[in-house]
Design a protein around this nucleic acid. Structure first.
Length: 447
RNA sequence: GCGAACGUGGUGAAGUGGUUAACACAUCUGGCUGUGAACCAGACACUCGUGAGUUCGAUUCUCAUCGUUCGCCCCA
């Protein structure tokens, strides 16, 4: 039987793996700049965490969770998102017992949702995100949005669309929910099945319905903005004006509801259309929540967070050719001439590596010409030839594969020579001759 | 969960109800036995996704199944 990957999962290999590493490290770097700290909750949680946290009426909980009974009969779930697990982590470790609020945490890792794989959609995918907990100010909301925005911008994504809306506080939502119930009660019989169940579970989500026939009914439904409490209204206005102040453009989208039940007040999504027309949906989204921590047994701290879909972002960057050239570099390729010098060659390779040069070696015995071919294929900068003569004199032949210049040197001389060669380049100015880029410079400066 | 299209080597892909499954790139080997991108010669699909059916015969037709992709739903 052929062994294959599980449906909806994907292997990340080669240059793509490099792309993920560089995207993820940029995300972390920016989060650190905003004074967030990393947390790593487990992938597995008691199902309860998500049922209570994400909400029973959400599709994520109702039909997309990877949940199962373990051998001890516990009901466990592979996390479908991070936020609920982070709340559990904060509560259990009593991170809230601090006067330094908000608690600012970031995370990165795989999440799991059982749904139909599609463009930009996987069953196991990676999310990066932050939670800022314990501080309800609009400024905090905007700071979090700015963080997400900065990350996406730093990755090179221009023409981002930030969609934003408010769901209001509990009071607003209760009166709005009542109004919706009242309005839809007389129409619901003519609406789609999904809407009927939403009507019972969470009438707010009816607004999300995409069924054409339902639109006229929905378009005439009461608007949240008419039911906002004065404090929610003020809060939203404040958030928008702060966004204006720091120069982040946004679109108010009243249909933006979000499918996770815990959101209240500010909610937002980032959209980006790649140049080839691929639409991956939201590449990042988030919002404010009030009751989540209390729901999981902690104090009544509010919070705000977002998460970014790493796969979608990498795809978008790839589509628009925004991924930096991050192919792995190879400084040296060691070529032993015969079996009898392999030991010496290996020790030379180790010394070169100890000096900071990426060194590979030909491990099987083949013609020198073939070894040169391999060195070229691997994009090596220099070839190191070692034969019996070299071993006797404790030397090596170093050949520049581009200029074809070669010289016979001792290992120490070779390292000194290489240090000088690579030193001529200055990676700080970003356009050095070795064609380097952030953190991948072969000039070894600043190491 | 619903609807549609597609599954031929490492890759891109032709192709036909009949025995050797084009072609190109990549890879490997040799010509060239301590010096590589050229050239020449050669190698490279033990189930043409998997299983079953129709047939004398199926990679080609039918059905099922799995997978991929796209749309809906929902989401990052």
């Amino acid at each position: 039987m052929e062994v294959k990957n599980v449906k909806g999962t994907h292997d990340i290999i080669g240059e793509e793996a490099n792309a993920y590493t560089s995207v993820e490290s940029l995300m972390k770097t920016v989060a650190e700049l905003y004074a967030y700290h990393e947390v790593r909750p487990p992938v597995l949680e008691h199902s309860e965490v998500f049922i209570r946290g994400v909400g029973e009426s959400s599709d994520v909980v109702r039909k997309e969770m990877y949940d199962f009974l373990d051998k001890g009969g516990r009901s466990l779930t592979l996390r479908p998102e991070f936020t609920a697990g982070i709340m559990r982590l904060v509560v259990q470790n009593k991170l809230y017992a601090t006067n330094e609020l908000p608690i600012k945490l970031y995370y990165l890792g795989p999440v799991f949702r059982y749904e139909r794989p599609q463009l930009g959609r996987y069953r196991q995918f990676n999310q990066f995100g932050v939670e800022s907990i314990g501080h309800a100010s609009p400024t905090n909301d905007v700071d979090v949005i700015a963080l997400a925005y900065t990350i996406l911008e730093s990755l090179g994504l221009e023409n981002l669309t930030l969609k934003i809306n408010t769901l209001g506080d509990e009071e607003s939502r209760n009166s709005y929910r009542d109004a919706l119930k009242k309005y839809f009660a007389s129409h619901i019989d003519n609406m789609c099945e999904d809407c009927k169940s939403r009507f019972e579970l969470n009438p707010l989500r009816i607004l999300d319905c995409k069924v054409e026939e339902d639109r006229p009914i929905i378009n005439k439904a009461p608007r949240i903005k008419d039911y906002l409490s004065s404090s929610s209204k003020e809060r939203f206005v404040k958030v928008l004006s702060l966004l204006d102040t720091i120069g982040i453009k946004y679109e108010i989208d009243e249909s933006l509801v979000r499918g996770l039940d815990y959101y209240s007040e500010t909610v937002f999504e980032f959209h980006y259309q790649s140049q080839n027309g691929n639409n991956y949906g939201a590449i990042g989204a988030g919002g404010h929540y009030s009751n989540l921590m209390k729901e999981l047994g902690g104090p009544e701290y509010p919070g705000i967070g977002f998460s970014l879909g790493v796969e979608r972002i990498v795809s978008v960057l790839k589509d628009d050719n925004l991924l930096p050239d991050i192919s792995s570099k190879l400084d040296l390729y060691v070529m032993p001439m015969c079996e009898c010098v392999h030991g010496f060659a290996e020790s030379v390779a180790c010394e070169l590596r100890a000096s900071g040069y990426v060194t590979d070696m030909c491990y099987d015995q083949t013609k020198l010409g073939n070894m040169f071919k391999r060195a070229t294929n691997k994009n090596a900068k220099y070839a190191v030839i070692i034969g019996e003569d070299e071993m006797k004199t404790n030397k090596l032949v170093l050949k520049d594969l581009e200029t074809q210049e070669q010289k016979t040197l001792s290992v120490e001389e070779a390292i000194e020579f290489l240090d000088n060669e690579f030193d001529e380049c200055h990676c700080e100015d970003h356009e050095c001759e070795c064609g380097c880029h952030d953190g991948h410079c072969s000039c070894h400066k600043g190491e």
